[in-house]
Amino acid sequence: MSSVSLLSTYFRPKPGTPAAAIDAILRGDEQARLMGLSFAAANPLSKQYLMGDSAVPVEGIIPLPVAEPAAGFLTLDILRRQRDFFALNTPATPFLVCDPDLLFFKPVSELFADDFDIALTRRAGSRRMPFNSGIFFVNNRNPQAAERFWSMQVAAIEDRFMGDAGWYGDQLVLRHLIEDEATVIAPDRYRLQGLTIRVLDGDTYNFSPDREHPYLFRRPDVHVYHFKGRCRSYMEPFYRHFIADGARSPLRPIGRLIEGVRLDMERSRLKPLYLRARERSAPKTAT
C-alpha cells in the first residue's frame, strides 16, 4: 500500500462567538490529531500537515502557519492556500486533503493504485451540491495534478461563485467542474482539462449519519466517517472506543447505552449554538 500524506486546515474562531463555543467541544487541532491517529492505525502514514492559525503544537503534525482568511472569503482563501501549498510542494506521496473532523475505520491507501489524478466523493440526495469537498484523494502519479486542480477551483469560484466564497463555494464549484466542464469517460470517472477525476461513493468514503445522530452500538462499517455538525461531540468517544482500545475493551451494551444517552443530550444542547454559528457562512459579494 502507498504511504500517504495528510493536509487539513483549521482556523480558530473568534472568542465569544457561537463558533468558539462549538470549537471548545473538540478543537480543530485535536480533531486533526485523532484523525491522523485513526489514519495511521489503518494505513501507512507519511506526513501530516495542519494549515491555519492554531498556536497549539500537536505531536506528529507539521504546522503550516497562514493568516486568517478575509471576512466572507473563508472557502476561497482556503482553496488559494491549498493551491499555493501544492505549487511549492510537489507531492512525493499521495495526499488526502481533508477536513480534520474525520476518522478512518478501514484502509484507503489502496485506492491510489487506481488510474486517476484526483478522487472526490458523491453526496446522495443533493442536486445543488452533489459532491462533497470534505475529502480529496490526490494521486501523485502526475506531480502537477494537485496544483492544476486547485487552480481550477479557485478560478471557477472567482469567475462564478463569489457570492458563496465564504462557505458553500467549494461545494458549488465541484458541481460546475464535474457536470459542466468535465467529460464522462466511464461510470463515475471524468476527464477534466487533461486530469482524470474519479468519484467515490460518499456513504463509504465520506459517511455522515442522518440528522447528525451517530450511535455507539457498533463499530462503523465504513472507510471514512465524517463527524459534521453537531455530531462533533461523538468524534472522541468513537476514536476511544472503536479505534484506540475498542478491540481490547469494547463497551458493554449498558455502557454504550449510557454514553449514547449522554452524547445525545449534548447534541440537543448544542443545536441553538449551531443555528447561531451559521451566521458566519452568510455570503458576501466581492466588490
Rank of each mutant, 00 (worst) to 15 (best):
S151A: 15
P94Q: 00
D203A: 14
D203L: 15
A182T: 04
W167C: 09
G202C: 08
D117E: 09
Q144M: 10
V184M: 12
T196S: 09
F137S: 03
D159H: 13
F116H: 05
A155I: 04
S109T: 00
F105H: 10
D164V: 00
K106G: 11
F137P: 01
A155R: 13
R160C: 08
N142D: 13
F136T: 03
R128G: 00
F112C: 05
G202V: 03
G163A: 10
D159V: 11
R189G: 06
S133N: 04
D180K: 14
Q153C: 13
D201C: 14
F137H: 02
D117Y: 07
G169N: 06
F161D: 03
Y190Q: 01
L120Y: 04
A182L: 06
P143N: 10
V97E: 02
Y190E: 08
G163E: 15
D170S: 00
G125A: 10
I185L: 08
L192T: 08
D159N: 14
N142R: 12
S151R: 14
A124S: 13
T121A: 08
A165I: 01
N140A: 14
L192W: 09
S109I: 00
P187F: 07
S133I: 05
L96S: 00
E147W: 14
F161C: 05
F131S: 02
E181C: 15
G202K: 04
H176D: 11
D170I: 01
T196Q: 13
F136G: 00
I197H: 12
D164S: 14
K106I: 06
R191T: 04
I178T: 10
Q193L: 02
R198M: 05
D201R: 10
D101H: 01
Q171C: 06
R122D: 10
L96Y: 01
I178S: 12
V154T: 07
R160G: 11
G194T: 09
G194H: 07
F95M: 00
L111V: 04
R198W: 10
L200N: 07
I118K: 03
F137Q: 02
D203F: 12
S126L: 10
V199I: 11
L192R: 13
H176Y: 15
R175I: 04
Y168C: 08
D180W: 07
I185E: 02
C98I: 08
F95P: 06
N142E: 14
R123S: 01
V173D: 06
R189F: 04
R198A: 11
